[in-house]
């Protein structure tokens, strides 16, 4: 067999039906962890049994911001940092949607979009937020992010970062998220399960997915390639479900606490509004929501 006559694979990759195949190949670098999170997301969608015509995905800007563009769902690639408020409008204006997922990076969600993150969590807006945390701004060439651990070198922290990073699960927990989990792209089964739980959960769900950026973060810090980062995740991760989020902050190549940290219930913004207005207006008020609103 010559090099040009590759065997035809009869089995389709199960991820393919979820992707806009005409848009492939994707832009992500070899060893990047974003694609792995997408794989987990497709598994969660399969397992959820949801009508995919009623699942929408919203991204901001950046490498992870490109996820929306590859998913074969109603998908919106919005402005930098504003995926959550766009998704808020989409969610509230069409309660018939089964789920609105926000899929974006750590810089997009916690720096430029940080204000929206905390307020959507406070309101318990019914959104599942997947935050792919690669500790850097990949699309723009590896600048310091609010998640960059102290000591890591970035192009705008050329002598090493001295700024205190966010502990994202603690932030989401403190602001009122009803579901908070962290996994790495080494933990594909657990990450897919968290996404499945997130899809089924009503209210503000925050899932942090630690992912390697071999091209920028790893290279500048001499951490090897994507596989080396997976080895790091494997060796240094400890599963502590229900961990106190105050204690799960990350350090440069230090121990990683993963797990489901928060799973609680409180009314979503829309449920609270409907309940309040029903109480206030009585029969004059028609609860806001579509035909599938109670799904």
């Amino acid at each position: 067999m010559s090099a040009t006559e590759l065997p035809v694979c009869e089995i389709e990759n199960p991820v393919m039906p979820y992707l806009r195949q005409e848009r492939l190949p994707h832009i992500w670098c070899p060893g990047c962890g974003i694609g792995t999170t997408v794989n987990c997301f497709t598994r969660a969608l399969t397992d959820s049994g949801m009508d995919l015509d009623r699942v929408a995905i919203v991204s901001g800007i950046g490498c992870t911001g490109r996820v929306a563009g590859y998913m074969n769902l109603d998908s919106f690639h919005t402005t930098h940092g504003r995926a959550i408020p766009f998704a808020t409008g989409l969610r509230l204006a069409n309660p018939d949607l089964a789920k609105v997922v926000v899929y974006s990076g750590d810089g997009d969600l916690s720096a430029i979009g940080g204000n929206h993150l905390i307020h959507a969590a406070r309101r318990n807006m019914d959104l599942m937020v997947v935050c792919v945390n690669n500790f850097t701004y990949g699309m723009t060439g590896g600048q310091v992010a609010p998640t960059t651990p102290i000591g890591a070198t970035q192009t705008t922290m050329p002598y090493g970062n001295f700024e205190n990073p966010f502990n994202l699960p603690f932030l989401a927990d403190a602001c009122g998220a009803v579901y908070v989990a962290r996994w790495t792209v080494y933990h594909v089964k657990q990450l897919a399960k968290a996404m499945l739980e997130g899809l089924k959960k009503k209210g503000f769900v925050f899932i942090e997915a630690m992912a390697p950026c071999p091209t920028l973060y790893s290279r500048r810090n001499r951490l090897g390639d994507g596989v080396d980062q997976l080895k790091y995740y494997k060796e240094k991760s400890k599963v502590v479900n229900g961990a106190d989020t105050k204690e799960v902050g990350l350090t440069f190549q230090g121990d990683i606490t993963v797990g489901k940290f928060v799973d609680r219930d409180r009314p979503t913004w829309l449920e609270a509004m409907n309940e309040h207005y029903t109480h206030h207006f009585g029969d004059r008020y028609t609860p806001y929501g579509g035909s599938h609103a109670q799904d």
Partner: peptide, 8 residues
Amino acid sequence: IAIQGAAW
């Protein structure tokens, strides 16, 4: 931007 999500 929320209004634009609502428009869509």
